[in-house]
């Protein structure tokens, strides 16, 4: 399908490019750190959207792939001396492998049961790593700062990881756009709408769901490597924060699940609100309460998210806001 004709594709790409190059234009480190977090969230939300928005399966433990990727990456870099690029790929592959094994096991569950199982998975992996000595157990692992020398020092490394995250974000948005208009994407959406009907229409639902799960896990795994490399340390509590999973869901739902632009807007908006709340003295402990409230309001009043609402409110925008 030639997605080039569709405006949503260009809107997404232009917004990403403007946002991505903003820190480079201004040269401001603060802008870069803000944009880093926004891009990270956009990429995480867009990845989750492949499973949540296209296939209709809610994963409450999606951050497990981010955390696992981070662990694998830091281990390979600090203990085995791998370069960042290879470690990033390895982090993505490990996340994909975990998703594949999990998918075969728990994707036969539907609805709330699948969602519950994903929470269990996140907690199980966290507990396992907490007790896994090669990964440093409860203390985690730290990177020696000398590692950054290979990448032109700490300051340069921060730009490098920024651009890497930017590239991944662009890639995942383009990919999710292509997927949406592909034959496989149509099969996933058939599953979302009515899984039993999809089976009778000939969609091989078990493999389609598993592939969707794997696709939604790869980029979070890679992002985990980049994030924790930049962070210079990784520990179980940081890597597998359940509430990060819930925030990912809020971002997707806020923007509009199943659309390409939805997770992009949702993540950017949520991340902006969050950084405001975190820095404001009045609200700094209420950030999660507000995320919860937001989720509640979305589910009650705009279940299809901002983009979904705009699409159904203004029918002319239906083809514009995919």
């Amino acid at each position: 399908m030639n997605s080039w004709k569709y405006p949503a594709f260009w809107i997404a790409l232009v917004l990403l490019l403007i946002g991505g190059f903003l820190p480079w234009v201004t040269g401001s480190r603060t802008t870069r750190e803000t944009m880093f977090l926004i891009l990270l969230s956009v990429a995480l939300a867009s990845s989750l959207n492949i499973l949540l928005g296209y296939a209709g399966y809610v994963s409450f433990g999606h951050i497990v792939f981010f955390g696992l990727g981070g662990y694998v990456g830091i281990y390979l870099i600090s203990r085995l001396g791998w370069p960042l690029s290879l470690a990033t790929v390895a982090g993505g592959l490990m996340a994909a492998l975990l998703a594949l094994l999990l998918g075969l096991a728990i994707l036969r569950l539907r609805g709330a049961y699948f969602a519950l199982a994903t929470i269990g998975v996140n907690e199980a992996v966290r507990t396992f790593i907490n007790n896994f000595q090669p990964f440093g157990g409860p203390i985690g692992m730290e990177l020696d700062f000398s590692v950054y020398q290979q990448y032109g020092g700490a300051a340069n490394m921060q730009w490098l990881t920024y651009w890497a995250v930017f590239l991944l974000t662009v890639a995942v948005v383009i990919f999710s756009y292509g997927l949406k208009f592909s034959r496989f994407g149509l099969g996933l959406m058939a599953i979302r709408e009515d899984e039993d009907a999809a089976m009778v229409m000939g969609v091989r639902t078990p493999s389609a769901k598993t592939i969707a799960y794997v696709l939604s896990a790869i980029v979070p795994g890679m992002l985990g490597v980049l994030f924790f490399f930049r962070n210079s340390s990784v520990e179980p509590h940081e890597a597998f924060r359940l509430h990060r999973s819930i925030e990912m869901i809020v971002m997707v739902m806020l923007g509009g699940q199943g659309t390409v632009l939805g997770p992009l807007f949702g993540a950017a908006a949520y991340e902006s609100i969050r950084s405001y709340l975190l820095t404001s003295p009045l609200f700094k402990d209420l950030q999660l309460a507000i995320a919860g409230l937001l989720l509640l309001l979305i589910v009650l009043f705009v279940p299809s998210g901002v983009v979904g609402w705009l699409r159904s409110r203004f029918r002319k925008l239906w083809r514009v806001l995919e």
């Binding site: 034959r183 149509l186 099969g187 959406m189 058939a190 999809a198 229409m201 000939g202 969609v203």
Partner: peptide, 10 residues
């Protein structure tokens, strides 16, 4: 899209 899904997967 509904009808296409039939043609794609049946």
């Amino acid at each position: 899209e509904n009808v296409m899904a039939g043609a794609c997967y049946g």
